[in-house]
């Protein structure tokens, strides 16, 4: 038997040429099929991941909306007290957070806070913090009436009541500076107990005239 002579005709050019010919002459369309199926799989994975993320984002946005609505409600309550005239019933209200629903969401994990400039509500779930913050229209202090009067008494030797107004050399700007510095402190509120929102007036004698400084007090 004659052993066929092994012809070593390998060269890079030949190989490339043969591969190219193989591809061009291949009428079974396997490469096309594999490429298109791979593209299909990748596209499906990307679309499924996008849909999954979109759903998760919508759920988070829904919770964000709920928190926004609650923060807005709280802000409106504080602003309504600010708008009302001092001494009227609407200038002193008790506010309850609407944190309970039948599905049990937003119960224990809900945190509310208030400072001189904003009211905020936050919710922590799976180490992710969702929060809603609303700026307040009126100057607000997270203290009760006696705390504020004591602070004024300590600094200006007068409580700022109608009967005991703050007298010169202290001016109303001294009082507003002190209260602004006090208002920067954020106070956390317990969402399961009621919040008192009260309008308070601080009287300051300035150039022989008595000026009224209006503040909203938010405390529990």
């Amino acid at each position: 038997m004659k052993i066929p002579e092994k012809v070593n005709n390998y060269s890079p050019d030949n190989f490339q040429c043969n591969t190219l010919k193989n591809f061009t002459n291949d009428s079974t369309a396997w490469i096309d099929l594999i490429l298109s199926k791979t593209a299909l799989i990748f596209a499906s994975i990307i679309i499924l991941a996008a849909v999954y993320h979109l759903t998760a984002e919508i759920q988070q946005a829904d919770k964000q909306r709920q928190l926004d609505a609650m923060a807005q409600d709280f802000r409106s309550a504080i602003d309504s007290v600010g708008q009302s005239h001092y001494g009227m019933a609407s200038a002193n209200i008790s506010y309850f957070f609407d944190t309970y629903d039948r599905s049990g969401r937003f119960t224990d994990q809900l945190n509310a806070s208030v400072s001189g400039e904003y009211a905020g509500i936050s919710y922590e779930e799976d180490d992710k913090l969702i929060y809603a913050v609303k700026p307040l229209a009126y100057k607000t202090l997270p203290y009760n009436e006696s705390e504020i009067r004591n602070e004024l008494l300590d600094h200006f030797s007068a409580s700022g009541n109608r009967t005991q107004p703050i007298m010169p050399p202290f001016t109303y700007s001294n009082v507003t500076d002190l209260l602004t510095s006090l208002a920067t402190k954020e106070k956390n509120l317990n969402t399961s107990t009621k919040v008192h929102i009260v309008k308070s007036l601080i009287y300051v004698v300035n150039n022989s005239e008595v000026r009224e400084l209006e503040y909203i007090l938010v405390y529990q």
Partner: peptide, 10 residues
């Protein structure tokens, strides 16, 4: 005094 009662953030 006109702006005193309004929050500085607004």
């Amino acid at each position: 005094l006109f702006f005193q009662r309004f929050s500085g953030n607004l």
